[in-house]
Amino acid sequence: MMINQEFAEGSTWVHKLDPRLKILMVVMLAIIVAVGESMPMLIQAVLLASFFIVAAKLSWKKVLKRLLVINFFIFGIWIFIPFTYPGTALFYLGPLTASYEGVIYALRITLRSNAIMLAMIALLSTSEMTSLLQAMKQLYIPEKLIYLFFFVYRYIHVIADEFSTLHNSVLNRGFKPRTNLHSYRTYAYLVGMLLIKSYDRSNRVYQAMLARGFKGKLYIRDNFSISVSDLLVFSATVVLISWFIMIEVGLIII
């Protein structure tokens, strides 16, 4: 199963940064990058995000592997957009004309996408999911949503195990997935069985919760403290993001 938190292991200052501040930093950065148009700003945002990756001492090989997945979609954009975007001709490929504006547009999408993904890897994936949930609770995300989140995250691993048991049992009976009705029917039964088992499990879980005195509230540990260095990093990021905004609205021309 691909559900693991390999990036959360580490003890650099990026890992130790208060998760509440991390969430705020990622959200601010993601919004300015997602709506920004200025090329110099986008390049600097990629650099800032890469700086966090370097500071967190994450393995570049693993990070690049993750980026490869999203750039697969971006690659599709590079195939189409340069040729369908109107503008001055840059080069010709058979009957197709690539426009200069189209290439710039595709490049902008690539930079944005990678900047936000790098920032997310460096700042969100370096925290345990449970700390992120605690932090979100303190950032006024509705409680019910946090509880749901907590349970989904907890049970994904359990259900993944359950699925692999079911899947192994069909494989052991000689099931070979092919493009035919029999295969689709088998998958439909697998999904159906998974849903039924999950439903039964949820009843047992709820009864166990009631037996332990559940009254609609989960108590989630929250013992964060913001250190001086956390504040310094946060303020520096806010200054940089303001700088990005100034470049974006044209107050500063590079």
């Binding site: 019910k144 989140f149 359990v158 259900i159 699925f163 849903l195 088992k197 999950s198 949820s202």
Partner: peptide, 26 residues
């Protein structure tokens, strides 16, 4: 969403999450 729905909705969500990772041959 009632209290009772919290485990139900979330465990069904986990199941759908896992099911959506299944690759079906085409």
């Amino acid at each position: 969403l009632d209290d009772q729905d919290i485990p139900k909705t979330s465990i069904i969500t986990s199941a759908l999450f896992i099911a959506s990772l299944i690759h079906v041959p085409l």
